[in-house]
Design a protein around this nucleic acid. Sequence first.
RNA 1: AUAGUAAGUCAGAUAGUCGCAUGUGUAAACAUGAGGAAAGUCCGGGCACCAUAGGGCAGGAUGCUGGAUAACGUCCAGUGAAGGUGACUUUAAGGAAAGUGCAACAGAAAAUAACCGCAUUGUGUAUACAGUGUAAGGAUGAAAAAGUGAGGUAAGAGCUCACUAAGUAGUAUGGUAACAUAUUACUUGUGUAAACCCCAUUCGGUGCAACACCAGAAAUUAAAUAUAAAGUGGCCCGCUUAUUUUAAGGUAGGUGGCUUGAGCUAUAUAGUAAUAUAUAGCCUAGAUAAAUGACUAUCAAAUACAGAACCCGGCUUAUAGAUUUGCUAAUAUA
Length: 115
Amino acid sequence: MKNTITIKKNFEVKYLLAKGKWTRGKYLTIYLKKSEKLQGINRICFIVSKKAGNSVFRNRIRRLLRQAYSDLESKIKKGYNILIMWKSKETTKNIKCDVVYDDMQKIFKEREMLL
RNA sequence: AUAGUAAGUCAGAUAGUCGCAUGUGUAAACAUGAGGAAAGUCCGGGCACCAUAGGGCAGGAUGCUGGAUAACGUCCAGUGAAGGUGACUUUAAGGAAAGUGCAACAGAAAAUAACCGCAUUGUGUAUACAGUGUAAGGAUGAAAAAGUGAGGUAAGAGCUCACUAAGUAGUAUGGUAACAUAUUACUUGUGUAAACCCCAUUCGGUGCAACACCAGAAAUUAAAUAUAAAGUGGCCCGCUUAUUUUAAGGUAGGUGGCUUGAGCUAUAUAGUAAUAUAUAGCCUAGAUAAAUGACUAUCAAAUACAGAACCCGGCUUAUAGAUUUGCUAAUAUA
């Protein structure tokens, strides 16, 4: 993730949730907001709610999302604020990385984010 | 072999490709990177700050004996009691003869016991009525005023005696002690202290969002109130001090603390053990929106519970699968 910065502040996340345009897939919901200040860089944030499961499960999901995004990074347009949220009620513990990757790619395709 | 009982151990491995955090390095690169409970936050300690910290009362905690420890409500070894054929297990185990309270239902009565019964006195022709003595017998209950036999008596009764049971005090022996055994004297007091209470020991508060430093912010304006009052974990003493209330305005960061420690491993010595001491070797996560991941191949399968957040010692709860050792049996077979 060479051209990406993580979003750290709480008020920035709240701003994205309020103003960003969202698209829903099978597992994920992705919020996007274009920003002219960012040139050749994306800012990203991963969210897994506490209702999803215990801390081990949440950590694993966050890592899968990070992995999937880093695989996709080179194919995506730059200059966006991105917020990826885990919305599924799945509790099966062996979710594979491919599933998350496919879902994310599908959503980015709908929003014409792919280069 | 089966059934049981006690104590444990492991918690995926190997190879390859890509990626993250920390350290070393000019760089390339190399090294290291979650648990047995990291969890619950129930105890104890280190460390930091605070006269809200000092003294007293109140309140909390603990409660057989000896030992271990920095400390503990923890651990080890024992004593008593209860359970089990046994290996073994459990134990909230000070005081009820300092005082107060409570004991549902049933029962005459739940602690200064007379309902029935037994004996006797008075009245009466008599069944009966009234009184007195009596805890041997009856029914109730979780619990009923020590048990058996003999004497004794109007009837009875530890009223007396013998044996037995329990308790208190003393003596002797063994044990560091809890206690055990024997014996002498006295007594026969229901249970409950997970009711109040008494006795002994012990306890200040807040937690790394502590705290220190840098940058920044604030220390401004207006109004009101009290002048000896205001603050002080529940109260008193002591202690501290010029502030207190309302409105407007205003607060987004970083560095340290942070991992060399009551540390880990091996050996020896002391001890039944918990543990202690000595010698040698080792450095083994330190993130801050938060690293420890993804994919492929092989092993029969890779699956349980679960993610470090200042650090240690315990306790409690969760846990797939694999596996080791000691011991027991009124079981079964040879």
